[in-house]
C-alpha cells in the first residue's frame, strides 16, 4: 500500500526539502516518489535546484505537486503512521492538503520494462521498479539514500 500527500498548492524547493527531511524520520517508509511539473534548467527557473536529504544532494527537477510513499510492511499502515504524516504536513503545508491511501507506485516489472532493459531486467531490484516514468533514464531520476543502521 502507498500513501499519497496531495498539497493544495504546488510546493517550492524549500518546502519540499523540509517536508522530505521530516518524512524521512518516519519508521516504515521504504520509497518516496515526488511528482510534479518538470522545470527547465536553473538559468531559466531558479526553483530548479539541488536539495539536501540526509546529507545527500538530490537534483530537484520538478515543482512538487504530490508526494507518494511506499510503506514497507502493509501491516504497518495504521492510523498512527497517517497521524505522523498528517502532523508533519500540518507544519509544512499551512494552505491545506489531502492524504490518500491506495496504490500509487507500480510494484511489478512489466513488458515495457522488459523491452527497455532486456536481459538486464532480472538484475534490477524490484525496489527500483515504478519510480520513474517509462521514458526516463532511471539514473537521472532516482537517488538511493542509505538508511542509518541503528
Amino acid at each position: 500500500m502507498d500513501i499519497e500527500i496531495f498539497p493544495h498548492r504546488l510546493l517550492s524547493a524549500d518546502t519540499t526539502e523540509g517536508l522530505l527531511n521530516n518524512l524521512e524520520g518516519i519508521e516504515g517508509i521504504k520509497r518516496i516518489v515526488i511528482q510534479g511539473q518538470r522545470l527547465p534548467p536553473k538559468d531559466v527557473n531558479q526553483e530548479q535546484r539541488t536539495i539536501t536529504l540526509k546529507g545527500e544532494e538530490i537534483d530537484l527537477q520538478i515543482q512538487t505537486g504530490r508526494i507518494l510513499m511506499d510503506i514497507e510492511d502493509e501491516g504497518i499502515i495504521d492510523e498512527s503512521i497517517i497521524e505522523d504524516i498528517k502532523s508533519i504536513c500540518e507544519d509544512h503545508l499551512p494552505f491545506g492538503f489531502n492524504i490518500h491511501v491506495g496504490t500509487f507506485i507500480r510494484k511489478q516489472k512489466t513488458v515495457t520494462d522488459n523491452l527497455k532493459y532486456g536481459k538486464a531486467l532480472n538484475k534490477i531490484s524490484k525496489d527500483i521498479v515504478g519510480l520513474t516514468d517509462q521514458n526516463a533514464q532511471l539514473s537521472e531520476r532516482a537517488t538511493i539514500i542509505k538508511r542509518n543502521k541503528q
Partner: peptide, 19 residues
C-alpha cells in the same frame, strides 16, 4: 503558456515554467 489548470504555487502565483 502551460499552467492555467494547475494548482497555484505557495505564493498564490499561477505556475509558469519560465517564471
Amino acid at each position: 503558456v502551460h499552467g492555467h489548470a494547475l494548482r497555484l504555487d505557495e505564493d498564490g502565483m499561477m505556475f509558469d515554467m519560465l517564471r
